[in-house]
Amino acid sequence: MRIDIEDLRVAYAGRTVVADAHLIAAEGEITGLVGPNGSGKSTLLRTVYRHLKPAAGRVLLDGSDIRELSPARSARHIAALPQERGGDFELTLREVVAMGRTPYKRAFAGEDAADRDIVERSLADVGMGDHADRHFTELSGGERQRVLLARAFAQQTDVLVLDEPTNHLDVRHQVELLALLRGRRRTTLVSLHDLNAAASVCDRLHVLHEGRVVASGTPREVLRPPLLAEVFGVRAAVVEHPLTGDPLIAFDHRELCNPAIFPDTSGNSLRDLPDF
Rank of each mutant, 00 (worst) to 15 (best):
V238E: 04
A56M: 14
L227I: 09
E84P: 10
T218H: 12
F262H: 15
L180Q: 07
A72M: 15
R182L: 11
G63S: 05
R106Y: 11
R182S: 14
L61P: 00
G57C: 12
L61E: 05
M128D: 05
D62Q: 11
E6T: 15
V214K: 04
A215P: 09
R58K: 11
R271I: 12
V59R: 06
T244V: 09
Q155I: 13
V175C: 02
R224N: 07
T137Y: 04
A109Q: 05
F108M: 04
L169F: 00
E138Q: 09
V17K: 03
D112V: 15
R254P: 13
R172T: 06
C202T: 01
R182A: 12
E27Q: 03
E111A: 00
K105L: 15
P226R: 00
L189H: 06
P263S: 12
A260D: 14
L160F: 15
A107Y: 14
G211T: 05
T102E: 14
L227E: 12
L149C: 10
Q145H: 01
D4E: 09
R134H: 12
S42K: 09
L91S: 08
L162I: 13
G217R: 12
F276H: 04
R151T: 05
Q174I: 00
M128S: 08
D246M: 13
D163R: 00
P247K: 01
P259I: 06
G100Q: 03
F232T: 00
G245C: 13
H77G: 05
L205Y: 12
A229E: 14
L228M: 06
G211D: 01
D158E: 15
S74E: 00
G63C: 02
E29G: 05
A198G: 10
H206N: 04
T166P: 08
D130L: 05
L181G: 11
L123E: 07
E68R: 13
R254V: 14
E120K: 11
G100L: 02
D170A: 06
L248E: 12
I78Y: 12
R172C: 01
P82D: 09
V34L: 08
P103N: 12
R50T: 12
Y49T: 02
A79F: 09
F232M: 02
G40R: 15
T265F: 14
D125C: 13
V239Q: 00
A198P: 10
V207E: 01
L44A: 03
V96A: 07
E84K: 11
G267H: 03
L192D: 05
Q155Y: 08
L189M: 07
A25F: 07
R94L: 08
L52G: 03
L243A: 05
Q83M: 08
R121C: 03
S70W: 06
V231S: 09
D246F: 13
E143V: 00
L160Q: 07
R58M: 01
T102W: 15
H209D: 15
E240C: 04
A113V: 10
A199E: 03
A107N: 08
A75M: 02
D246I: 08
I30Q: 09
D163Y: 02
D62V: 10
P274F: 10
Y104G: 07
A132L: 11
L45S: 05
L45V: 03
A25D: 11
G100W: 05
E95R: 06
D4S: 05
P82E: 09
E176L: 12
E240V: 04
P36A: 04
I3M: 07
A25E: 10
H131T: 03
